[in-house]
């Protein structure tokens, strides 16, 4: 049982950690590009902002789904 608990803990950490890596890199790159482009063309700022938030949601999705699954694994294993 201890081994199962340990493996679930590792798996939850990997699911959240690797997912967070990808999502953070993606959102960071996009945020930087957004700042770049709105500094060049401030009149496009509002139109780009809507699209950026939409894409944040899209990029975040895989990470959030993973977090939800990891939290579910974690709570159903450790909080019995």
């Amino acid at each position: 049982m201890d081994q199962v608990n340990g493996l679930v803990a590792l798996a939850c950490g990997l699911i959240i950690g690797l997912g967070a890596n990808g999502a953070c890199i993606g959102i960071g790159m996009m945020g930087g590009k957004y700042l770049d482009s709105s500094a060049r063309q401030p009149e496009l700022m509002n139109a780009l902002q809507v699209k950026m938030f939409l894409l944040i949601g899209l990029i975040d999705a895989a990470f959030i789904i993973g977090t939800g699954i990891a939290l579910w694994f974690g709570t159903s294993t450790f909080l019995k």
Binding site: G57, A61, A62, I64, I65, G68, L71, T75
Partner: peptide, 17 residues
């Protein structure tokens, strides 16, 4: 699937937190 799971995942994780 991703359309439904995205909303569910966000809200479930939020509620659990």
């Amino acid at each position: 699937i991703s359309h439904g799971m995205r909303l569910f995942g966000n809200m479930f994780a939020g509620e659990l937190l």
